[in-house]
Amino acid sequence: MHSDSIVSIRNLNYYVGAKPLRQQILFDINVEVKPREIVIMTGPSGSGKTTLLTLIGGLRSVQEGSLKFLNQELRGANEKQLVQVRRHIGYIFQAHNLLEFLTARQNVQMSLELWKDIPEQEAKAKAEEVLEAVQLGDKIDLHPQKLSGGQKQRVAIARALVSSPRLVLADEPTAALDGKTGRTVVELMQRLAKEQGSALLLVTHDNRILDIADRIINMEDGHLVSKMLTKK
């Protein structure tokens, strides 16, 4: 495992429930993600993909094995340390999770409020700039109910990328979108991630977008079963 990896996972196991009913969800996971790398994780529903994503994102606690983010070991990390980690990660979910009472700009700007040292004017300008980048410059003052599904998902991408995270985690980001819109959305994520030097880890069932990956990993029943390298 190289020290320049953004994510470095060794012998990771994960369980749910209490003994004797405890169930193992992830088995001996070993994987790493490098800067600017786009990794797609595929596999059937219930195979453990989202569980792995939430562990990497500091949204669950590591139980067994090693999970390092930017060389910091997350096993044994306390809540305060996990909050610090989350600052460097952008999250994009299938449901865009936008706040209906905020405009597109306010939804994006909210992401910067974790960073106490960014003045409001700067946060506002940054939010507008990234909405411009996702081709929503003319929609910044609209509330989510006035936006289409694809536009809402682009606001969610802008929100994930506005703080220039080191890692972007996306869980089924195209599931609710038609093929053309889904393609536009992932190409946008790909371009912005590469420009910012972020790594992108994407969980998807959408075979139409697999070609954007530098690498595809496959999860089955809690095991990473194959690592197929895609041709660039």
Rank of each mutant, 00 (worst) to 15 (best):
K80S: 15
I38G: 05
M228E: 15
K126A: 13
D214K: 07
S163G: 14
G76Q: 07
K139E: 10
E129P: 09
A158G: 09
A133M: 14
V186Q: 02
W115A: 07
A77E: 10
G57I: 00
K124M: 08
H205T: 05
P119E: 15
R86F: 04
V186T: 04
I92T: 02
L74C: 01
R105T: 14
T103P: 02
S8W: 04
A133Q: 15
L201I: 11
L229W: 13
L55R: 01
G150C: 03
D4F: 04
H205M: 08
V225C: 10
L161N: 03
G179E: 12
Q109M: 15
L67T: 05
A18S: 15
H88A: 14
E64W: 10
E113D: 13
Q23W: 05
T54V: 11
K49I: 00
L169G: 04
K139I: 09
K152E: 01
E122N: 12
I40A: 04
V31M: 15
L26V: 00
F27I: 10
A160C: 08
R10S: 14
M189W: 03
P144H: 00
A158Y: 01
I118Q: 08
K124D: 15
E73V: 09
S226G: 14
L98H: 03
I157F: 01
D178G: 08
R159C: 05
K34N: 13
E132K: 13
Q196F: 11
D4N: 14
N218S: 15
I38T: 09
P20N: 06
N13M: 05
